[in-house]
């Protein structure tokens, strides 16, 4: 555990809580892609199956359980409790275009051809692209509420901090997880354009972020 990893995990947690609280307090999930949230729930579900097989640390177990619970709570709020506010008309990203290549790749490129390892690899690759329905939705509607952009900012920050964590671990521990690092870098690149808009429009302006 290093400071980048810890800060990355905290950013990830903050992002998820921001989104959950936004939906809970406003009793609305307008502008939120339910598809992205289902994909994230799928990411956690397939990655954390090792909760049943290996014990890493108390921190590890607690965080995994929290991420799983919060991601399912978010999906529940969007599709059940506040489904009247769900903007399905604009949440039209074709998820199968992500799932098919990701499933294919996880069978081709993995550390071991075992069910748990393939599912772990699937979750890593899927996480890299899971935000795309949300970004697509923002592009389609041309705007995002500021709370939604704060959520995306903390998600992107989490990715950036994980890269710093990998640089640190590579130098200090000789640790290098090629699958996680490559897809993590790809994932972070997706946020760069958003980061630029966030700084130039949300932080300097106020309220909603609208696209040019």
């Amino acid at each position: 555990m290093n400071i980048f990893r810890l800060a990355g995990d905290v950013s990830h947690l903050v992002a998820i809580i921001i989104l959950l609280l936004k939906i809970w307090r406003s009793k609305s999930c307008a502008g939120i892609s339910g598809k992205s949230q289902v994909l994230f729930a799928l990411v956690f579900s397939t990655r954390y199956l090792d909760l049943f097989t290996v014990f890493v640390s108390v921190y590890n177990v607690v965080m995994k359980v929290v991420f799983l619970a919060l991601s399912y709570a978010t999906v529940y709020l969007i599709y059940m409790r506040f489904r009247n506010s769900y903007d399905s008309e604009n949440d039209t990203f074709r998820v199968e275009f992500l799932l098919v290549p990701v499933i294919g790749l996880s069978f081709l490129e993995n550390y071991a051809f075992t069910p748990l390892e393939i599912l772990w690899t699937f979750s890593i690759f899927l996480e890299a692209v899971a935000i795309m329905p949300q970004l697509f939705m923002i592009t389609k509607t041309g705007e995002a509420e500021s709370i939604t952009t704060h959520y995306l900012f903390f998600l992107g920050l989490y990715r950036a901090l994980y890269i710093a964590n990998w640089v640190w671990r590579y130098h200090m521990e000789g640790f290098f997880d090629q699958i996680a690092v490559v897809s993590g870098v790809v994932q972070t690149i997706f946020y760069c354009d958003f980061f630029y808009l966030y700084v130039t429009r949300v932080l300097r302006g106020k309220g909603k972020m609208s696209l040019p």
């Binding site: 290996v54 640790f175 996680a180």
Partner: peptide
């Protein structure tokens, strides 16, 4: 290197 089936990151 990477030890299979021991992913310590979240």
């Amino acid at each position: 290197g990477m030890k299979v089936e021991e992913h310590d990151e979240l």
